[in-house]
């Protein structure tokens, strides 16, 4: 399950709208615990797909950008728990292309549809354990505002632990 704060949810939608008609992308930062990925912050990253004309349907994250984001997240006590990207004028369904370039099961792949520049619904996916395909996961938009930071993360961990016993 993917758990987003309302603020993070709004930021991801806004990023999808801002990068329209190209695909926008970035990293979901937070904590992984008890089969839940709790996201308390995002790190928007440039879409570096080499052919600019194809960025309406393609994205790529520069590993060097990921490295910098991972270190910054670490300094704030956070981890990379997933990837978000937008599908301009296309349903938010993980594609064969997403599968071909996926990494490890456990990361959330949150896809937001952006239609005519307006952010629409989002769906989240995780790579199956045998890497054969993507399995949809539930998204929960948490009502509370946890903000960002180590103190809030501890709160997040506690919430996760309370919700599901190990």
């Amino acid at each position: 399950m993917l758990v987003l704060t309302q603020e993070v949810d709004a930021q991801i939608r806004a990023h999808g709208a801002a990068t329209y008609p190209e695909e926008g992308c970035g990293l979901l930062l937070g904590v992984m615990a008890n089969d839940r990925n709790l996201v308390t912050a995002i790190r928007p990253l440039p879409n570096v797909w080499p052919d600019a004309a194809e960025r309406r349907t393609r994205f790529r994250i520069d590993p060097q950008d990921w490295r910098a984001a991972e270190l910054d997240a670490l300094a704030n006590g956070l981890d990379v728990v997933g990837i978000f990207h937008s599908h301009p004028d296309h349903p938010p369904v993980a594609s064969a292309r997403d599968l071909a370039w996926a990494s490890w099961p456990g990361y959330s792949y949150l896809i937001t549809e952006v239609r005519q520049g307006q952010p629409g619904s989002g769906r989240s996916w995780q790579l199956a354990a045998d890497r054969s395909g993507f399995v949809e996961e539930e998204i929960e938009i948490a009502a509370g505002d946890w903000g960002v930071g180590t103190r809030d993360l501890r709160l997040g961990k506690r919430i996760l632990n309370d919700q599901a016993p190990l």
Binding site: W66, E70, H87, H90, S95, R97
Partner: peptide, 14 residues
């Protein structure tokens, strides 16, 4: 040593 994945993807071609 940091382990960093390469990630890409996108909507199916129209």
């Amino acid at each position: 040593l940091l382990i960093i994945p390469s990630i890409a993807g996108g909507a199916p071609s129209k």
